[in-house]
Nucleic acid binder design. Structure first.
Lengths: 345, 345
DNA sequence: TTGAAAGCGCTAACAG
DNA sequence: CTGTTAGCGCTTTCAA
């Protein structure tokens, strides 16, 4: 028979230890003003009884919240998964719990989720993933976040600006330039880009870097096919099919994230087109599977786990007068999916 | 200048609407006992002011908790990511928030995380991922969970038994049998297994199914190499290297999850061994990338997203006298990585 | 150092 | 149907 015992309360511990609940509280929450003897005894008793303080009561009474919120586009996307992994690591280390929400890539959803996080009185809100270039969709969120910060909440974002908060900024522009320069240096000129919604700042930034690289060889983005699709594996597959149909002379494809690149590879394999012999393919992010694909994917590595760790670290620091910016680096990772342009057939 | 305004409280809304806080509370929490007129008005005012109730105060006052906890081994593992995705979907639908924790595959960590979830007064705790065959490591967790349930908490587990809670049971044994039968039917007899820690019930169950299939052709597990390594990509790579070194006559490898299979494929590619021409490879789970690998991976599909959805649904139902069991199905997905045994060289 | 008592913001009895 | 009031379990003044 399960004991229908009520949950253990602080008063139970205090009684057992023979002290007041105030003393017990001080001992357990690690604040000053208790003799070491009592503190020690209370902690022992609590441990023995298996007492764990009610987070809601503690937070309501004015104690600092021990939970933080993480908002991502889609938890199934490896980019966000790796970021989440970094956040979880630091959180566990600090004894913080993490509420993860995802918008399912629906911008309207973002406001709902942010509100929920605020209602949960999280200590900090972390928002990962590109915002939309369209400022209008963002203004409500921004306002909500501003109020949150004004009342002591902390906010850090990964990969977006214009939110008036500390930010970890992935090296999208420079990375876009690097990967494009790499493909260009291999001799390719008929390059197609498989891109996600151009309203995403991530897409816009990476593309802008690509444009710079193109400029160095006297080309520009208008000269090459830029095919839009969902920022997912399926989107990559669709984009590649369109590239094949509409631009048969293309010799290299740069996908603006690895997920799309995986779809691109898939479509190519289905059509019997050899990579990199007949077509070079490059991605962006260096998600964990990228090196295990066949051919192993040439891509731009972003330190995603660290980005998650860093975002939480920023959010745990007291807020500064001006938002902090932590740019990340990037590394061009050349593997097997890109090769020099062959002599024309 | 950011207004250093205090957070909006229920009383602010009540005043603005010209009603008592009780009426306002009833209107906002959707309970009965308010006239439609007032309810309507209060809701309008609250919306206009941007009021959101404090979750901690609400929960402390006896309202049902709106958050649930999800504990996984490793959020970076696609198996858990897809489960999490299903949980998040249902949670969003129900207006619930989800606290995700991961143990980092450290069994001792499990207890810490469960305690934290309980302290957070989550409405339900979902535990995904195989427990350890060793009952001793589990007993503390089990006890904690028992108390949690006795005080009204709900628990559902995915892929483990013996925790005295509702369970979603992946078809591990039957799946292990199916995939092994498939490889056997292709003519392979020198089959190696790349497995995770055998203390994991998932590994034990899948292996047991494999044993059954082997029995059908007069073999048993002792007749074939079973190589242990971490249940990860890296583990798969290591296992494959050992198989190649110690059992050069093997013609097929069954990895007990897709992550390991990816590592197996990687190791094979590094050694220049063609799949499936020289070696057949099979996985388990059918994670999202499996179909995009080259060669596309033959595997056993488990409905992971649904498993997550179902676990939360179970946990949201009132508890029953005896723990419920929801077995999942499985589907053998034959793709390109397995092929008939070639005539001996 | 210690303890008594006043809330934190809300829900749920209880009166009206 | 409406409002008043007593807590929920904890932290934190405030006296002692």
């Amino acid at each position: 028979m399960a004991q229908e015992r009520a949950r253990l309360r602080l008063v139970d511990v205090a009684e057992e230890a023979g002290v007041s609940i105030a003393a017990a509280s001080r001992a357990l929450s690690g604040s000053t003003g208790v003799s070491d003897v009592i503190a020690q005894r209370v902690r022992e008793v609590a441990a023995r009884m298996g007492y764990v303080a009610d987070v809601h009561a503690r937070t309501l009474a004015g104690g600092a919240s021990t939970s933080i919120g993480l908002l991502v586009h889609e938890i199934g996307d490896p980019y966000f998964t790796e970021i989440a992994s970094g956040v979880l690591r630091v959180a566990a280390e600090q004894g913080l719990t993490v509420q993860i929400c995802h918008t399912g890539r629906d911008p309207d959803n973002e406001l709902v989720q942010v509100r929920a996080l605020i209602a949960n009185r999280v200590r900090a809100i972390l928002i990962a993933g590109s915002g939309f270039v369209d400022a209008r969709t963002q203004s409500a969120v921004k306002k909500e976040l501003q109020t949150f910060q004004a009342t002591g909440g902390r906010v850090a974002v990964i990969g977006r600006h214009h939110l008036g908060a500390d930010a970890v900024l992935p090296d999208n522009t420079a990375g876009g330039r690097s990967i494009t320069e790499h493909v260009l240096s291999l001799g390719h000129r008929r390059i197609a880009f498989a891109v996600g919604l151009p309203a995403l700042t991530t897409v816009a930034d990476r593309l802008s870097g690509a444009g710079q690289a193109l400029g160095e060889v006297g080309l520009c983005l208008d000269d090459v096919p830029v095919v839009e699709a969902a920022f997912t594996r399926e989107g990559g597959r669709l984009a590649m099919q369109r590239i094949l149909a509409e631009h048969p002379d293309v010799t290299a494809v740069i996908a603006l994230n690895d997920d799309m690149a995986i779809g691109v590879l898939s479509a190519l394999r289905a059509r019997g087109i050899a990579v990199p012999e007949q077509m070079s393919v490059a991605g962006f992010d260096d998600v964990a599977v990228a090196e295990h694909l066949s051919p192993a994917l040439t891509t731009v590595r972003l330190p995603m786990t660290e980005m998650g760790e860093q975002a939480l670290s920023l959010a745990l620091k007291p807020s500064s007068a001006r938002p902090r910016r932590r740019p990340t680096g990037h590394t061009l990772v050349v593997r097997e999916s890109t090769a020099p342009l062959r002599a024309p057939r």
